[in-house]
């Protein structure tokens, strides 16, 4: 079995385990390359018939290409799509110009909290990877969160072999991370091999491309000539620039991410 097949198989096992143990689960789809790859593997795990909803947390500030992609493929793949928006905060005019931390927190974390309590989800599948950001290297595959989303990263349960934790207190929920062991390069190699459709913002136009996409307001493109998946793979094989270097919230200070995450940010 080749390396990518190994990664894929581990991910399938975790997805199926999460569904078996919790039933009331949902997957978060940001429409970025990682969660689109996860969605691809989720479709494989359930033979094309995903038995749970796919949730998009919509801040309303996403790139238009993201919305177009979402609508096209949620139809083509027959997804049960839930769009999670904090309408109240949006009506109050929450935006990055008035404070990025607060904007991320109300439009993503708070929106997600509301949707979880509305649907009473016990587990959420997320496409985070260990190599993405320092603090994420500490994540478990099955990670319990308290009712108010707190991640107790100083005292996490042990996780041995593929015997994942499967019971939690009533008021807790789980974050499930089936892509934890993939790297950015693995993702692109897999996208190339499987021909997974991907938002075209990742491909270079006029010497610039996005390496990580989120809100149009807070993402900057990086210099790049990679206008095909093949060239992205080549580019990443040699780069020493961090993936999220185009992301505003990572630059604020070294511990912003840690603070955001302990508040429940993805």
């Amino acid at each position: 079995m080749d390396y990518l097949a190994e990664l894929e198989n581990k991910t399938i096992y975790i997805i199926r385990e999460a569904y078996n143990r919790f039933k009331n689960v949902a997957m978060l789809w940001s429409i970025g390359k990682d969660s689109t790859t996860l969605l691809w593997v989720v479709r494989k795990a359930f033979f094309g018939k995903i038995p749970f909803p796919i949730m998009h947390i919509d801040t309303s500030y996403k790139f238009k290409e993201i919305y177009e992609f979402r609508d096209k493929y949620s139809k083509e793949w027959g997804l049960n799509l839930i769009i999670s928006r904090n309408e109240k905060a949006l009506a109050e005019g929450t935006c990055p110009e008035k404070g990025k931390l607060n904007c991320c927190n109300s439009l993503k974390t708070e929106a997600l909290k509301m949707t979880i309590s509305e649907y009473k989800f016990k587990a959420l599948l997320l496409a985070i990877r260990r190599d993405e950001h320092g603090i994420r290297a500490k994540e478990r595959y099955f990670s319990p969160r308290t009712a108010d989303f707190k991640w107790n990263y100083k005292d996490q349960p042990a996780e041995l072999w593929d015997l994942y934790k499967s019971r939690i207190e009533e008021e807790q929920h789980f974050r499930i991370h089936p892509m934890l062991h993939w790297t950015e390069l693995d993702i692109w190699r897999y996208i190339e091999k499987e021909r997974i459709p991907i938002v075209n913002l990742y491909l270079a136009k006029n010497g610039k491309r996005y390496r990580s996409i989120g809100c149009a307001t807070c993402c900057a493109p990086v210099d790049s000539k990679a206008d095909s998946i093949r060239k992205i793979v080549k580019e990443l094989e040699t780069t020493t620039i961090a993936e999220r270097s185009g992301r505003a919230q990572d630059k604020e200070d070294a511990y912003t991410m840690q603070r955001l995450r302990s508040l429940g940010y993805m």
Binding site: R130, D131, G134, I135, A137, K138, Y153, K154, Q156, Y255, Q258
Partner: peptide
């Protein structure tokens, strides 16, 4: 990576 780890100079959880 954790702030506590750096301040106390110990590793608390595994990192990959």
């Amino acid at each position: 990576q954790l702030k506590e780890e750096r301040e106390r100079n110990i590793t608390i959880d595994t990192t990959q």
